[in-house]
Design a protein around this nucleic acid. Structure first.
Length: 842
DNA sequence: CTCACATAATTTTTT
DNA sequence: ATTATGTGAG
């Protein structure tokens, strides 16, 4: 429940006054063309209807691959071309910058240069910033407010929690940040927090802390991401004249991915979409509104996969209730996938109950189309190997690696594939993960810039006072803090004051003076030095560059490279301030299309993408659907997982391979697994179960060893048979072989091989080993297998099945041997992996 | 202040 | 198992 009463009616019969675009504009030109405009050509009837139904509320239910973006962009083009509105009178919101950029580009192509400014096309957040900058004073901010990211947010909260004398170990700031995010997603201000929610943190102090946090943000002249929605909502509510301005302004509202909107976004949209009834009696409450709403929401309830971060599928399911008289247009003709893939996806998603219901179809049927293939692997390592082989086979047949993707449920699954690809020397790229600007070195550099551009940015100042190390530790920072609080100034100002006194130890005082003077110098240069030059200078003079140059760790060169990249990217902006404005909201890496590489990403980050061949590994109970979704979300959680599966399936254009492994290591422990229930939800007619006959595959495996203690709780499965081939006790030769092969592969990765390229898109952990920088390409050499031998060929003094005693875990039976590591089923402690040195024969 | 050790957590991600 | 984070001693 999103908590909105259904008593805010929307009437679609009240026409808004309409401006007439000036002669000579796009409209005039379009009219001159007289014929059905070219941009409408090639649309199917439903798409065309969605484009041309410009008046009143419209919900476009666009199934996967049905041309959603095309409809959206053509609709904008149509509104412009027919002169219904100027570019600046259209509000078009998306969730990601990427989507916004794509939309902008495509509209420009459709309409020609004339779109110069679609100033109100952007993400919820970027539009929120724009609105907030205009009216910041109304809620006690100055329009130069800074935008805090999650990291700043958590640090700030931690300070507050500690200041309140709350044990921040028992009540971690991270957890509180998540709660506050959740509240803001729901559009709740501190005063709206229900008692129960408040009690959920620090023994009932949740609400008070939230209020304190908001207060603190205000004094810092800062906002967090959630505020970018919350503040405009508050302004709209409290200042009807401001809201009326926007009502007059926005003639058409378009929303992309409507199924992903959370309650706050819904509220925000609703405020903008509802207009005061012209005949409304004087003194009618704010609730007494009605409207002609030219709002068009595009989405797909079956692709709602962000419930866990506050998205309300309900928003899309309730659209017709929210907007009476709304036209609902279904786009069901799919232009992407084969009939088999669509059949599989449709059949699967039909198992969900809470959906509006669509049936995808295609008119393109090719006799060469292949069925969806389901494969079983012994363990996750074999799964990775087999997928690798398939990819190499496809590559040999002339398929581009760029057209293939592996979509995993959880990011830890990526590791095994990466290992495998490195071994094979196969190019791959990882999409998703931490962003470029979330990296330590980038954030440090930005903190310097922020202090220079805005001396009052205390959080930024605090971040870098002692980076690089200047001998200004906790005690010194506390001192600066105290002075700042006492005189009610910024930390930088307090530091400046403190330097003039005797209060600090000489060593620290001179270090601080040096820093303060540097900042003054840089600030003085701000307006008369090109910003990229200044940026470089700051990083040089502060000693920040040297800090990394002197760092001999493996990631240091990558970090320096990233800093260079940062400076380079600043060139696109006019000034330091302009750059900082954008950097908080926009900064994602573009994927390098030049490099032919396999795409590796989570199912979530795959939404909106498509590939000829898609591999979906890890279809096992507990992983997919994920246990935690099941535990926390119940049936709704399961349905969201199913939608995630649907998203995965519908990414494929031609070939789709689904895998499950009978054994997988979870938290360092090997566990046998059960095939995902989703496999049983696929239709026989479109699916083919592949009997593996690969080198390490089915041959020679003992048959029919069902795990006695683990019956399939979801009833008999058609894949039980296939699973049986592989499921057996750990004492089998197959298990040991798998173990051995696993260590071999790991050992091989110690080397590197040149000529193998890895691209990481927005995936920054510089210490993750492969490729340090953003989109950086780093070679690896694989020197040889000899390393491998020495590890796994060491004979163990133990044998599988032997009974042993362990000091901590007690008695148990050896289940498997892997070099000097033993997997033992302990009578009391369950299955553990231990070194053979720690056990003795009973 | 820094280094070494211990401890806890470990789905998904945008802005 | 792995990793990040935090604490305690030097």
């Amino acid at each position: 429940m999103s908590g909105f009463p259904d008593d805010l009616p929307f009437f679609g019969d009240d026409e808004a006054p309409r401006a007439t675009p000036r002669a000579g504009g796009i409209a005039a030109r379009a009219m001159a063309a007289r014929q059905a405009p070219r941009y409408l050509e090639g649309l199917n009837p439903e798409q065309r209807l969605a484009v041309e139904t410009t008046e009143g509320p419209v919900l476009v239910l666009a199934g996967a691959g049905t041309g959603k973006t095309r409809v959206l962009t053509t609709r904008i083009a149509h509104i412009l071309a027919t002169g219904k509105a100027f570019p600046s009178q259209i509000l078009a919101v998306t969730f990601t910058n990427k989507a916004a950029r794509e939309m902008k580009t495509r509209v420009e192509i459709l309409v020609g240069q004339a779109v110069e400014g679609m100033p109100w096309l952007g993400t919820f957040h970027s539009i929120g910033v724009k609105i907030l900058r205009r009216h910041a004073e109304l809620i006690g901010l100055s329009s130069s407010f800074t935008i805090l990211d999650t990291d700043d947010q958590v640090r700030l909260m931690k300070q507050l929690i500690q200041a309140e004398g709350i044990d921040d170990k028992r009540w971690p700031a991270r957890q509180f940040a998540m709660m506050v995010d959740g509240w803001k997603n729901k559009g709740l201000a501190p005063a709206d927090i229900p008692e129960g929610d408040s009690r959920a943190f620090a023994g009932g102090r949740g609400r008070a802390l939230y209020a304190a946090y908001q207060e603190r943000l205000k004094t810092l002249n800062a906002v967090d991401f959630g505020d970018l929605l919350m503040h405009p909502i508050r302004i709209f509510r409290e200042y009807p004249d401001v809201l009326a301005d926007y009502h007059r302004k926005f003639r058409y509202i378009l929303v992309d991915e409507y199924q992903d909107t959370n309650t706050a976004q819904y509220l925000w949209l609703r405020l903008l979409a509802q207009r005061p009834r012209r005949s409304a009696p004087e003194g009618a409450g704010a609730e007494e509104r009605s409207a002609p709403v030219n709002i068009c929401c595009v989405g797909d309830d079956d692709q709602s996969i962000y419930g866990w971060r506050g998205a309300e599928v309900d928003n899309i399911l309730r659209f017709e209730k929210d907007f009476p008289g709304a036209k609902v247009i279904r786009l069901e003709r799919n232009y992407r996938s084969t009939a088999h893939i669509l059949g599989a996806a449709s059949h699967l998603i039909a198992h969900n109950e809470g959906r509006l219901g669509k049936t995808l179809y295609t008119e393109h049927v090719d006799p060469d189309d292949v069925k969806v293939k389901v494969h079983a692997a012994w363990d996750s390592e074999e799964e990775a190997r087999a997928v690798g082989e398939e990819i190499e086979a496809l590559q040999a047949k002339g398929h581009a690696l760029n057209d293939m993707a592996i979509l995993v449920r959880a990011s830890f699954q990526m590791r095994e594939f990466e290992d495998r690809f490195v071994t094979l020397g196969l190019n791959y790229r990882v999409i998703g993960g931490p962003r470029f600007y979330e990296r330590q070195e980038i954030r440090d550099a930005l903190a310097y810039f922020r202090v220079v551009a805005q001396g009052a940015d205390d959080l930024a100042f605090e971040r870098i006072v002692n980076v690089p190390k200047r001998g200004l530790g906790e005690a010194a920072v506390r001192q600066i803090h105290d002075v700042a609080r006492l005189r009610n100034t910024s930390l930088l100002q307090a530091a400046r004051d403190l330097v003039g006194t005797e209060e600090m130890k000489p060593k620290q005082r001179s270090a601080l003076r040096n820093l303060v003077e540097s900042f003054e110098r840089w600030q003085g240069m701000l307006d008369r030095t090109p910003h990229t030059e200044l940026a470089e200078l700051i990083l040089e003079e502060s000693g920040y560059i040297d800090m990394w140059k002197n760092d001999r760790s493996a990631e240091a060169p990558g970090r320096l490279e990233n800093l260079k990249e940062l400076i380079r990217s600043m060139e696109e902006y006019e000034s330091l301030r302009g750059f900082l404005e954008h950097v908080a909201l926009v900064m994602d890496a573009e994927r390098d299309e030049e490099l032919d590489a396999v795409n590796l990403m989570t199912l979530h980050s795959a939404k909106g993408l498509e590939f000829d061949t898609v591999f979906l590994p890890g279809w096992e109970e507990g992983l997919f659907p994920h246990q935690r979704s099941l535990d926390e979300g119940g049936r709704a959680g399961l349905e969201e997982e199913r939608r995630l599966a649907y998203v995965g399936l519908t990414r494929a254009k031609k070939n789709l391979h689904i895998w499950f492994a009978s054994n997988r290591r979870i938290h360092g422990l090997w566990q046998s697994t059960i095939p995902s229930r989703f496999l049983d939800e696929l239709p026989e007619a479109h699916v083919e179960v592949v009997e593996e006959a690969s080198a390490y595959g089915g041959y020679g495996r003992p048959l029919g060893h069902r795990q006695p203690g683990r019956p399939n709780p979801y009833g008999p499965s058609r894949f039980d048979e296939a699973g049986d081939v592989f499921s057996s006790s750990y004492a089998t030769p197959g298990w040991q072989r798998a173990q051995k092969n696993r260590t071999d592969a790991t050992a091989r990765n110690w080397g590197t091989r040149s000529g193998h390229q890895v691209e990481r898109i927005g995936y920054g952990e510089p210490d993750s080993g492969y490729g340090a920088g953003r989109g950086s390409v780093k070679g690896r050499t694989i020197e040889g297998e000899l390393v491998a031998k020495s590890v796994s060929d060491q004979p163990s003094p133990f044998k599988v099945g032997e009974r042993v005693f362990h000091l901590k875990f007690g008695n148990g039976n050896i289940a498997a041997i892997d070099g000097n590591k033993l997997t033992i089923n302990f009578d009391k402690a369950g299955q553990k992996r231990v070194l053979d040195g720690f056990v003795e024969r009973v």
